[in-house]
Design a protein around this nucleic acid. Sequence first.
DNA 1: CCCTTGACTTAGA
DNA 2: GTCTAAGCCAAGG
Length: 111
Amino acid sequence: MGFFEDIRKAVCRIPMGKVATYGDVARAAGHAGAARQVSWALRNADALGIPWQRVLGSGGRILLPGRAGLLQRRLLQEEGVRFIGGRADIAKHGHRFKQSARSDGSGRSVG
DNA sequence: CCCTTGACTTAGA
DNA sequence: GTCTAAGCCAAGG
């Protein structure tokens, strides 16, 4: 398995109308701490059919510069993601990945 | 192997 | 809120 494959799989797990941070994607892909590399894998995501627009920076901030950033925001808004003060409402649209490689299973939901 | 780059993240002032 | 510094990891020259 390649590095990018793990990343792309994780990104594809994000459903429409939901968003996740680079760090979350990296963690869900089994590469915690590789948040920066997530963006690397997303550079060619568009050509691979990856929902790259659902990946944001910490706090729901769009880090993509230029038109790409505007495009990302527009795409998300079309998916129903609400933006507040230039940031996506991750409290409402933040996607929570299923428990992956968690020793204590702290990531599991109870109710 | 060494150094630089990058759509990152957290902590401090 | 804005800026700086340090930590982080993989790809490319």
